[in-house]
């Protein structure tokens, strides 16, 4: 069984935020006004953020500060707290281990956003808007299967959205292989952030295949998860610094 997984090597990450921007363009996450952003309404499915989040005396004083950056896509947890609390199955784990979101089903109760220990779920407070001609450059892709609306499709107001490991790219790659009459190869599918990563710090592949890069990297001594003790069994792997 395929189990898609992302590995982020924090040693190689230069915190350029390229992944964040690539994600935004690929997945049509709307840009919000500065006032709204200040109010905590910004949307970055793939956020680059400083660690530790809460600066305390342990981090030292300027200029002797101990601080680093991390990046945060969805962890696609194996025991996803968001999936467990959704009352209408608008969010679900598919058979390939990707936690997906159905925008046509979501009732906007925001239980998943509250339950997620990583804060990687975002809510559409207003109707998404794009300034001037930006709307013309939106990604036209969308996943519509039996009334479910997913992927980079423009989200309506009042629903929750999240990183999907660019699942529409997987569907596209599969269809491409089908049209060309050949078998689909796992290396044909990578999310936009992995494709764009400046420091080549991100890897993507099938965790179930023992020969894949991600499987090999998951055996590294540096391999770790974010908030390992949260009980959610997060999947996205980090290779720790140092």
């Amino acid at each position: 069984m395929t189990d898609w997984c992302m590995v982020i090597d924090l040693e190689k990450c230069v915190a350029c935020q390229g992944c964040s921007i690539a994600c935004r363009m690929e997945n049509n996450t709307p840009v919000v006004s500065p006032e709204e952003a200040k109010n905590g309404r910004e949307m970055r499915w793939n956020d680059v953020f400083p660690l530790p989040v809460h600066l305390g005396p342990d981090q030292g004083e300027y200029p002797n500060v101990k601080m680093h950056y991390s990046t945060r896509p969805c962890m696609h947890c194996k025991n996803a707290p968001c999936v467990k609390v959704c009352p209408v199955q608008a969010t679900f784990t598919d058979e390939e281990g990707i936690v997906r979101q159905n925008y046509n089903r979501c009732i906007g109760c925001r239980f998943c956003t509250v339950a997620c220990p990583y804060g990687v779920r975002y809510f559409n407070w207003f109707e998404p808007q794009w300034e001037e001609t930006l709307a013309e450059y939106r990604n036209p892709d969308q996943l519509v299967v039996k009334g479910s609306l997913e992927g980079p499709a423009v989200r309506p107001v009042g629903v929750v959205e999240k990183c999907t490991y660019c699942v529409h790219r997987l569907v596209k790659a599969r269809e491409q292989a089908k049209v060309e009459g050949r078998d689909f190869r796992p290396d044909e599918y990578v999310p936009a952030c992995v494709q764009t990563c400046t420091g080549k710090a991100r890897f993507f592949g099938d965790l179930d295949d023992p020969d894949s890069t991600v499987s090999q990297l998951s055996k590294s001594l540096r391999a770790t998860h974010l908030l390992e003790d949260s009980g959610a069994h997060p999947k996205t792997l980090y290779l720790a610094e140092g």
Binding site: V88, Q89, C106, I107
Partner: peptide
């Protein structure tokens, strides 16, 4: 009033997941 999509209230009955605490509450 707290729901983002009150128009989809009926979904809790149509697609309700019995494992979800919110459905127990409803």
């Amino acid at each position: 009033m707290d729901m983002g999509r009150p128009d989809r209230l009926a979904y809790t009955l149509i697609y309700g997941r019995l494992q979800a605490p919110l459905l127990w509450d409803i």
